[in-house]
Design a protein around this nucleic acid. Structure first.
Length: 108
DNA sequence: AATTTGACGCGGT
DNA sequence: CACCGCGCCAAAT
């Protein structure tokens, strides 16, 4: 374990329950660096190098918008995955976002 | 060692 | 609705 920011992000993302989602900001805050949500997104960028390792599609921005879908090789992949998990999506917006939201502090 | 970058957040114009 | 600037901070170059 490197305990690096990335590692922590990986851990948190890996704990996101099926059918739930969380936000960059929530993760950043949980990691003790509130406001450093950019780091989270960046960390997830590295995540792309480990396909299938993390459910990065369950991480969206604070509005529930799939802002990172473009990093999934296609613009519909992310939404598709989420919908497969029972999450309704309209455009880039997750419906019932608030209800599906999961926070690191609620970790299993 | 310094600068750039980034899948964000938020208020302002 | 579009665009802008600021804050935030670690990793990559």
């Amino acid at each position: 374990m490197k305990d690096s920011f990335f590692e922590k992000v990986y851990q948190v993302v890996a704990e996101i329950p099926f059918g739930r989602i969380t936000t960059y900001g929530a993760i950043a805050e949980y990691l003790g660096s509130k406001g450093a949500s950019r780091m989270v997104g960046w960390a997830l960028n590295s995540t792309n190098k480990f396909p299938g390792t993390l459910p990065a599609h369950r991480v969206v921005n604070r509005k529930g918008l799939l802002t990172g879908k473009r990093h999934f090789g296609g613009t519909r992949v992310m939404a598709d995955l989420l919908q497969s998990e029972g999450i309704e999506i309209k455009g880039d917006q997750i419906l019932n976002f608030k209800e599906k939201l999961w926070l690191p502090e609620d970790i299993q």
